[in-house]
Design a protein around this nucleic acid. Structure first.
Length: 276
DNA sequence: AGTTAAACCTGGTTGC
DNA sequence: TGCAACCAGGTTTAAC
């Protein structure tokens, strides 16, 4: 599921309703990617603070009597989605985390269980800190200039598609949006990152921002599992130019869209429009 | 050091 | 119809 737009859509759906909410209980289902860790014995009475996002992670700070106690670092993996419901039904076979609060139940549904909910004393302590430390700059951070993005790309000899997925030059683009951004920028996914000129890096950064921003406005993409916290699907996948469109005409030149496996992921591109 | 496979897990779709 | 093979939004970890 969830690349940056889907995670941010999720965050926007829960941040305001849950700010200041009081927790009653936490319930876990089957194991997720990592165990919860050294969490408080009881979550009853903890208050939820301002939920933030870093890359594809969500951070929910929790406090008791106004004193920060720690928080939950959450990741939606490949197939996770969060829902906030006033009257949550009995947990289904893929509901692996519930946070019962006085504003409703926050529930993680994740069939493949690549997602995670991990307790951390703060974002600067383990286990959150080492996970967040590898993340590159946020795509909409004004500090991320074309020059800095270009400098980061010049450090990498791997294909630009792999570098975008790795997220150390910029976070947020997963398989769908990496394919789409490379198409928008007219860059071949197999091009070595260190061979990209400054003007092309500038175009690529703009394309990443444009693609993620557009997806955000459309509520993200839903291939199968993703829904926002009210259960609504995203709409971006319907206007993807190349992703999932193997054999269909390129919207720009009409040539058949190609699919090739790169970095263990299906990569869609137009060989005519995207130059090495 | 830097890049590339293997692993985690379930379920839907495709093809023989 | 049955069953095997393949595919899917991610990313840590181990192996070249």
């Amino acid at each position: 599921m969830p690349e940056l737009p889907e995670v941010e859509v999720t965050r926007r759906g829960i941040a305001a309703p849950l700010a200041g909410a009081q927790v009653h209980a936490l319930r876990l289902g089957k194991p997720l990617r990592w165990p919860l860790g050294r969490a408080p014995a009881s979550f009853a009475g903890l208050r939820i603070g301002d939920i933030t996002r870093r890359g594809k992670y969500l951070w929910m700070p929790l406090a008791r009597q106004g004193l920060a106690e720690g928080g939950l670092l959450m990741h939606l993996g490949m197939s996770g989605s969060l829902a906030l419901q006033a009257d949550a039904p009995e947990p289904g076979p893929h509901d692996h985390f519930d946070l019962v609060t006085d504003r409703g139940t926050l529930r993680l549904n994740d069939p493949r269980r690549f997602g995670a909910v991990v307790w951390s004393a703060s974002m600067d302590d383990a286990p959150a800190a080492p996970l967040l430390a590898r993340l590159g700059p946020e795509p909409f951070d004004p500090e991320l200039t074309a020059a800095r993005f270009h400098a980061a790309l010049r450090q990498r000899r791997a294909p630009i598609k792999a570098v975008l997925l790795a997220g150390d030059a910029v976070v947020g683009a997963g398989n769908i949006y990496a394919c789409e951004a490379l198409f928008q920028a007219g860059i071949h996914p197999a091009l070595r990152a260190d061979r990209i000129s400054l003007p092309r890096a500038d175009r690529l950064l703009a394309a990443v921002r444009g693609t993620l921003g557009r997806a955000l406005a459309l509520g993200g993409s839903t291939l199968r599992d993703f829904t926002d916290v009210h259960g609504a699907s995203g709409a971006y996948q319907a206007e993807a130019a190349v992703y999932g469109r193997e054999g269909q005409p390129c919207p720009r030149c009409g040539a058949a869209v190609k699919r090739r496996v790169m970095s263990q992921r299906s990569t869609y591109f137009c060989a005519a429009c995207q130059k090495r």
